[in-house]
Design a binder for these strands. Structure first.
Lengths: 192, 192
DNA sequence: GACTCGATCCTAGCATCGCTAGACAATCAA
DNA sequence: TTGATTGTCTAGCGATGCTAGGATCGAGTC
């Protein structure tokens, strides 16, 4: 059995290598540069090997998205936990969200923009995605205000953050005013 | 000179045909389906003809985006003009924005998501894009609240709308709760 | 220790993509 | 009618995602 186990370990390691490499190329040169040929060459295997791990490029993006969502949830929770009081928590959360998006644009795109074949807002939504939303809900639910459903409020706040993140990175909003925008967002949306 | 004029008219007509066809394919089957071959076949010319009008596919997307922005600005102004009072105006504007995005997803993507080689948030931003933002500013500036820069407020409100539009269409937000989200957005962000 | 057989991997290739060079035809001025 | 210019098309390049089929290697059996 030991031989089999070793093979499975090696296979799992290779899969991690594929995802790490895909993410690296995507962050450096964009997802368009993540071609199956380039990816295969970087991991020093031939193209078809990729297809023994994933159905195709879409599924690779999806896998990077899931990893990224887990990471993002942890980042958001850490930022919220380090702040005292609802207001500081919400502000810290918002800043952490935008910073994650700015520092990991390719991963952010994989999670929220690209088609990775993932289900959303659904019962069969993958756990990491649900958990990332839960991380938002934990801090935002307490500032939703009376009579407002926490989930609905979280969706709206999230949409605001998502809009700021994507419009800024796509060059549609000048980046220098990010901070006052975040403050205004928190001031207006959150009931403190 | 008349011959020359006729040729220019025909050439302009063909350019409009290219853009209308590109938009049609994009709305029906997505921008990935807008290939130069398919587009050329639909307009009943060979591929290279496209390149005598546009530098490449990017520029076609950009041209569709500019047309779309003009159309969107008109739609937003019409919606705002039909409403009485700041609150009704802002609500109508928000609904019109989201409806435009939902009804013309490909055009919306061309304007706000895809790379059409356009400049944004810049002095050399094309007029239609500036004008679309101006259409938002006209209705939103009056509800920014004291001491808040109207432009900054408009950017934030816009980001909220953009987030709702894109997350909903990408399947990240369930579509049925759009209306309460819009109401909450207006209630919280606008100072009435 | 030789052999079989299944798992694993690679070479080669398909259809399609955006884009372009160069040949050809139509049109105009002289 | 001729010559040049303008317009268009055929054919092809390099690159893409993905796959079929053959080669290779190693584990397990006698």
């Amino acid at each position: 059995m030991s031989v089999q186990e070793r093979k499975e370990r090696e296979r799992a390691a290779r899969e991690r290598l594929i995802l790490a490499t895909a993410r690296e190329i995507a962050e450096q040169q964009g997802w368009d540069a993540v071609t199956t040929r380039r990816l295969a060459e970087r991991i020093e295997y031939s193209q078809p090997v990729l297809y023994s791990h994933f159905r195709g490029k879409r599924e690779i993006i999806g896998a990077v998205a899931l990893e990224g969502a887990t990471e993002m949830a942890a980042t958001l929770r850490a930022a919220a936990a380090a702040a005292d009081g609802p207001r500081a928590r919400v502000t810290a959360l918002a800043r952490a969200y935008l910073e994650f998006a700015a520092r990991n644009p390719a991963v952010y795109d994989a999670i929220f923009q690209l088609d990775g074949g993932l289900a959303f807002a659904h019962e069969d939504t993958p756990q990491p995605l649900k958990d990332a939303f839960a991380a938002l809900l934990e801090s935002l639910g307490e500032v939703a205000g009376d009579g407002v459903h926490p989930g609905l409020f979280t969706e709206l706040f999230w949409a605001g953050l998502h809009g700021l993140a994507t419009l800024t990175r796509a060059g549609r909003l000048p980046p220098q005013d990010t901070e006052p925008r975040v403050e205004l967002l928190v001031d207006r949306l959150a009931v403190l």
